[in-house]
Design a protein around this nucleic acid. Structure first.
Lengths: 138, 138
DNA sequence: CATTTAATTTAGAATGATTCTAAGCTTTAT
DNA sequence: ATAAAGCTTAGAATCATTCTAAATTAAATG
C-alpha cells in the first residue's frame, strides 16, 4: 500500500490507529481539493468499490477534526463540509452552486480584540455571494 | 401602540405589511441585544402572553433576513441565531456557553480578493473559543 | 495457538431543527 | 356583501446528524 504511506504516518503522528477506513478517508481528503460533504465522500468511496458505512464517515471525520487533521467548515444549516487545509484561510461560498473557494488571509491585519475572549481556538472568514461560473453559465 | 411606532415605520419602509406578529417579532429583536435562537424568541414571546406559532417565527425571521432587517448568524449545525445588527461586525462564539459577542471590524484592512467571486452579498468573521465568563466560573 | 479484552465498524433507530402542507383566519378590494 | 389575496397556524414530513447495541476486527494474555 505505497499510496497509503503518507497518510499512515500522519495518523500515527496523531496517535490514531491506521485502520483501513481511516486510511481510505484521509487519503480521499488529501486527493480531493474541494470541500466535500459527508454524503459526497461516502458516495465517492462507495463508487470506487470500497465498503464503509456512513456512520464511520461521520465518526472518523469528527475524530480527524478533533485531532487537527481536518477542518470543519461550519456553514449555515446545510450539510457540513470538510477541508483538508487546516492553516488559516478565508472562504468564498457561492450561494447558487455551493462551491467553496479558498483564499489566503492575514488575520494579523485585522488585529481583532475580543475583550470577552479567554482563548481563541479557530478563526473563520466567510464571504458569500455568487461566483463567476454561475453568472456566466445562466 | 406608541412602542410599535418605530418598528412599524421600519417594516413599511421595506414594503412589509405590519401585522401584529411581525411587529412583535421586530420589536423583540430590537429590545434584545443577544443573538437569540428561534426557540428562545418563541419561548420569550409566549411567556409574555403573546400567542404566535413557531412556524410564524420561522417565516417572519426569514422574511426579515431577506429584506435586510436582520442578519442570520449561520453557525455550524446547531440552531440558527438572529442578529439585529446588520452592519459589518465580527463575532466571537463561546463554544461552552454559546454566547456570541460582537466586535466592530474593518474589512478593508483585509483587502480580500476572490478572483472567482462575481459579487459578494455578505461577509462574516467568526472567532471561536471559550469566553472569560466560562473559564472563571468553573 | 486459543481465548479474553479492547477497539472499531456497522445498520438502523432516534433526535431535533427546519420546511412543507393544507386549512383557517384577516385584511383589502370589488 | 362577497370575493380575493395575504398571513398565520398545527401538525406532518424531511433530512442531516447522533445514538445504540450488536457484529467484526485487532491486540493482548495465558
Amino acid at each position: 500500500m505505497k499510496e497509503f504511506d503518507r497518510v499512515t504516518a500522519l495518523l500515527e503522528a496523531k496517535g490514531i490507529k491506521p485502520s483501513l477506513q481511516r486510511l481510505l478517508l484521509l487519503h480521499y481528503m488529501h486527493s480531493c481539493h474541494e470541500h466535500p460533504t459527508v454524503e459526497r465522500i461516502h458516495a465517492d468511496l462507495t463508487k470506487q468499490g470500497h465498503s464503509l458505512s456512513k456512520a464511520t464517515v461521520y465518526n472518523t471525520l469528527t475524530l480527524f477534526v478533533q485531532k487537527g487533521l481536518l477542518r470543519l467548515v461550519g456553514l449555515d444549516h446545510s450539510e457540513a463540509r470538510y477541508d483538508i487545509l487546516t492553516c488559516d484561510h478565508a472562504h468564498f461560498v457561492c450561494e447558487r452552486c455551493g462551491t467553496i473557494y479558498d483564499v489566503p488571509v492575514d488575520f494579523d491585519l485585522l488585529n481583532l480584540q475580543f475583550p470577552e475572549a479567554e482563548n481563541v481556538r479557530q478563526r473563520d472568514i466567510f464571504y458569500r455571494g455568487v461566483c463567476k461560473r454561475c453568472t456566466t453559465q445562466n
